[in-house]
């Protein structure tokens, strides 16, 4: 199986994601350049974190127009696995592969810290190694992670069980206080209706090695690997 990590101008978690897939999980991994038109036979696309195009217009707003993203759109339509982390999640929202939009964090500050996440849906390609209610400890690092969708969209999201990860306490309660950035329904990770495109604000690649203080992020990558094999 083959992973592709997309590099947009301004991506800055591209090497981190590549490192974890390649050196920690020993998977064949390629970098994919935003100007390319070819996904080179990969089985899972990862859109990494960063500040694509400086995020000067809106987070992820310009990256969605890159040639490669048109390939990613078709890849997703064919059922290919797409994981968007942080800025990657924002790109997926702008691209319309996931519903909703991101607002600035409720305290109007960039937030870099470990958070607790409750797995709400463990039957996805990205969380199948977990169990519902399981709590993960994974860091976030973003300015615009305050998830918003209009009420009718939220109804759909809930009806289809699209909320995969939620900000929670260490015991799994989705309280207001645990909702660090103010997201609706404490949404930290969201999947599309077809169940093959996941966007998540927390960085699993930053929590995949013991030396970095948590290995809970491994669950996301292990789930993908087990799903694909």
């Amino acid at each position: 199986m083959k992973f592709g990590v997309v590099i947009f101008p301004g991506s800055n978690c591209d090497y981190d994601t590549y490192w974890v897939l390649k050196e920690v999980f020993h998977q064949e991994t390629l970098f994919l350049w935003h100007k390319d038109h070819d996904l080179r036979g990969i089985d899972c696309v990862v859109l990494p974190g960063g500040f694509s195009y400086g995020d000067y217009l809106r987070s992820g707003a310009i990256a969605r127009f890159s040639p490669l993203m048109q390939e990613v759109r078709e890849f997703a339509a064919r059922g290919g696995l797409v994981l968007g982390i942080c800025n990657g999640f924002q790109v997926l929202l702008e691209l319309g592969l996931l519903p909703g939009a991101m607002l600035r964090n409720k305290n109007l500050k960039f937030l870099c810290q470990f958070v607790h996440l409750k797995i709400n849906n463990a039957e996805t390609p990205f969380t199948n190694q977990g169990r519902p209610g399981q709590v993960l400890r994974i860091p976030i690092a973003h300015y615009d992670g305050n998830f918003y969708a209009p009420p009718e969209t939220m109804e759909e999201i809930k009806k289809n069980n699209q909320i995969v990860l939620q900000y929670s306490t260490s015991t799994g309660e989705t309280t207001e206080e645990a909702n660090v950035n103010g997201s609706l329904e404490n949404i930290a990770g969201l999947i599309n209706q077809q169940g093959n495109v996941l966007g998540m604000m927390p960085h699993p690649e930053r929590a995949s090695e013991a030396v970095l203080g948590s290995q809970d992020g491994r669950l996301i990558f292990q789930s993908i690997i087990s799903w694909l094999s």
Binding site: L57, R58, F65, E94, A101, L103, Y148, A149, P150, T153
Partner: peptide, 8 residues
């Protein structure tokens, strides 16, 4: 298409 995100 570009300047605004019509969702918000």
């Amino acid at each position: 298409k570009v300047l605004a995100n019509p969702i918000i």
